[in-house]
Write a protein that binds this DNA or RNA. Structure first.
Length: 596
DNA sequence: ATAGGGTTAG
């Protein structure tokens, strides 16, 4: 590889007066630059060729394209490719692969089509690479085209093409087709197995993904860091601490080299499984960190409502790494969840001054949250009306939620009007507005809004909670009808209800979406999935153990209150992870401070 | 010479 000629050529830039370098010298020089990713030298060699009016043959032109691609200078690579009098499959593929790997998928596809039009036949390298640019639900048509091409040319069951193809199908939501391609592969390796597992994870089929992994693993599958990252994503979502620890154990036992990305996944997994201290331990032991490491840690503290740590870690971070837009999101939402209103607003002012360009509507959403939490609703409304973005439903929703907590009818009506216009089918908005009217004693308006809701709304995403006991996931849906322990849970929850009421628990009937009588409302509230899961947890865990519950949506006020009373009456800590954050309930109080 | 699976936030 690194011949004497190459070294001489690379270091001298071929500036030998009077001597025209020949093919081998140029080739050696370019190769050396490719190996070292030496862009500047590569450019010099290229310039030398131009200056010497040397016309490189296809091979050498291709090497130049590869050199620029490997050095991330895609536009230079493209210029070389476009200027070549002839191209071969390698030239085209190298360029397509450059686009694919830097996420410039439309250009990759466009070039692929151009290649076909130029009469160049793709090979397995081309297909494997171009398929990675076919993802996204809207381009299923392209996937089909490329697939039929792959089938026609008999590459469908090629290891690389097949893995890429099944991944495309999975990412377009067609897991059956992905599975079919996977089952056709001549053999299975780490990448193809990881790809199909990741397909299930991608579609949120976490339990299926784990089953598949168990199956592969006992059949002797070799894992690498990508496999582990894929598994950790799934375990974070399930909040399965035991399995998470097991995967961590596997990673340690394998003595893999250090990968920042893998450690990042571990930080995230522990924080989503409720073990912030473990996240921090992983974070502290990392010899190098990326911005994502910091962001994952910041998000973790925010998710758990530990505002002070968010601010402190953010300060440390800024001494080492430049915060990106996710960092700012983590800090602002962390301040909001942690109740640090003034700190959050100060940081926001600073960001507006120094990094205004990376702020987006979600950042403003966090600040609206902050102001809302502090009860500064008019200020929040002013900010929405003056921010440099069109307010999204999420923004108005955040304001409306704050109006409920602080019972502010006039601001609520502004926010609600916008929301009802933007998403008339969303029942939640009507419910909150009617709750606000109810809290203000404006009963006529309560009925008006309820009536409107019955006319217009569509059903929402069904609520679902789960608890993991002894590595088994027990899932509950609201008004559960099919759970095997249904009868026992019903009996137990009635028993609890008497105890809790005796301790002062009052059901919050305004949480019920439907227009039914109060008795029916109470029954419906008791059917909420998180109450079922908590009750199931109480029935099946020894006294003193923390009950860990997960919920796919935000927790409702009544369930939150229910959990508080359970924590007090039965002396149980309850850790409840909802869509956005953790609630740690103990002795009748919650770490969220009743604002979420 | 050119190739497949992936981390925070949405």
């Amino acid at each position: 590889m690194c011949s004497a000629a190459a070294r001489r050529a690379a270091t001298s830039g071929l500036a030998v007066p009077g001597v025209e370098a020949r093919f081998h010298d140029y080739d050696a020089a370019v190769t050396s630059c490719i190996d070292r990713r030496a862009l500047r030298e590569g450019r010099q060699v290229h310039a030398q060729m131009v200056k010497a009016r040397y016309r490189p043959p296809v091979y050498l032109g291709t090497r130049l394209v590869i050199m620029y691609v490997k050095c991330d200078a895609l536009d230079d690579a493209r210029n070389v490719l476009d200027g070549m009098p002839e191209r071969n499959v390698v030239s085209w593929t190298a360029m397509i692969s450059g686009y694919s790997q830097s996420g410039r998928h439309p250009e990759a596809l466009e070039l692929f089509i151009r290649m076909l039009r130029a009469g160049c036949k793709p090979n397995e390298f081309t297909l494997a690479t171009v398929l990675t640019s076919c993802s996204g639900p809207q381009s299923i048509h392209q996937v089909k085209q490329v697939h039929s091409l792959a089938a026609k040319t008999n590459f469908e069951s090629h290891m690389f093409v097949g893995s890429s193809l099944l991944d495309m199908y999975a990412k377009s939501g067609n897991i059956q087709e992905a599975r079919r391609v996977f089952d056709m592969l001549p053999e299975r390796d780490t990448v193809s197995c990881t790809a199909i597992i990741s397909g299930y994870v991608h579609l949120g089929l976490d339990e299926e993904a784990l089953d598949l992994f168990r199956q592969f693993y006992s059949a002797g599958m070799r894992c690498n860091y990508v496999t582990f990252m894929t598994l950790l994503t799934s375990l974070s979502r399930l909040a399965s601490l035991d399995y998470g620890k097991q995967v961590h154990g596997l990673i340690l036992r394998k003595e893999l080299p250090f990968f920042v990305v893998l450690q990042n996944s571990l930080i995230d997994m522990y924080s989503k499984c409720g073990k912030l201290l473990y996240s921090r331990r992983v974070f502290d032991y990392m010899p190098q960190r990326s911005a994502i490491s910091w962001n994952a840690m910041l998000m973790g503290y925010g998710r758990h409502g530990v505002g002070l740590e968010v601010v402190q870690l953010f300060r440390t971070m800024t001494e080492e790494v430049k915060p990106d837009s996710v960092t700012l999101l983590a800090v602002l939402s962390g301040c909001s969840h942690g109740g640090l209103v003034d700190e959050g607003l100060d940081i926001f002012d600073l960001i507006v001054k120094e990094q205004n360009a990376i702020l987006s509507t979600v950042h403003y959403g966090c600040v609206i949250d902050l102001l809302g939490r502090a009860g500064r609703l008019q200020k929040a409304l002013d900010l929405i009306e003056n921010m440099p973005f069109e307010p999204t439903p999420a923004i108005w929703g955040s304001l409306l939620g704050a109006c409920r907590v602080h019972v502010n009818v006039s601001v609520a009506e502004v926010a609600a009007q916008k929301l009802l216009d933007m998403e008339p089918g969303n029942a939640g908005n009507y419910v909150i507005l009617s709750n606000i009217y109810a809290a203000a004693g404006m009963w006529k308006d309560v009925f008006r809004v309820r009536k409107l809701m019955l006319e217009k709304t569509v059903s929402k995403e069904p609520g679902q909670s789960w608890i993991i006991l002894d590595k088994v996931i027990h899932t509950f849906h609201s008004s559960e009808r099919f759970h095997p322990s249904k009868k026992d849970i019903d009996a137990k929850i009635k028993e609890l209800y008497i105890d809790l009421k005796a301790a002062g628990f009052v059901p919050d009937l305004s949480c019920v979406l439907h227009d039914v009588d109060d008795e029916q409302k109470e029954r419906m509230l008791l059917g909420h999935s998180e109450k079922l899961a908590i009750t199931f947890g109480l029935m099946n865990t020894p006294p003193g153990l923390t009950i860990r519950i997960m919920k796919n949506l935000r927790i409702c006020v009544d369930c939150h209150n229910f959990a508080k009373f359970v924590s007090k009456v039965y002396g149980r800590e309850i850790s409840l992870r909802d869509k956005n954050r953790f609630h740690l309930l103990a002795d009748g109080a919650c770490t969220c401070g009743d604002y979420w």
